[in-house]
Design a protein around this nucleic acid. Sequence first.
DNA 1: GCCAACGTTGGC
DNA 2: GCCAACGTTGGC
Length: 154
Amino acid sequence: MKAEKNYWLLKSEEAGYSIDDLKRDKKTAWTGIRNYQSRNFMRDSMQVGDLCLFYHSNSEPTGVVGVAKVVSKSYADPTQFDRSHYYFDEKSKKEDPTWMLVDIAFVKKLKHCVTLAEIKNDPALEGMMLRRRARLSVQPVSEKHFRYITEELS
DNA sequence: GCCAACGTTGGC
DNA sequence: GCCAACGTTGGC
């Protein structure tokens, strides 16, 4: 386990769970990740204290709207065992859970949404995973890119 | 283990 | 609402 802090980007549909929802709740379990690569990042690499860009998808505009912090180690996503839940997964076993999550806490909202268009067009953000990889809801971000975006492209 | 069919994400 | 990208499933 390395001590160095990591940086991430978490996507959420604005209508599903927005930065304002997180601000209100202060803290939430990041349920519902059902993609192996995203799960692996949370399970294997996320550490307490890591910072995350909070990204709104399917919104107007779409982009980074805030910052969240990882506040737990990874643990089994309880919704996978809840038969009545949308995210229920009948193949997952309690003794060997398929889906993991972490708890995140609200840190701040950005003054302005840093839009996907800005992210795509800014030479300083060359190489950001978001530019290349569609459909990955948890992804790593370099410290440089994290700082650049949270200082809102200054 | 290949790959076609299918389903979902998410920008536009 | 369309559809491209791309992950997953299942037949062989």
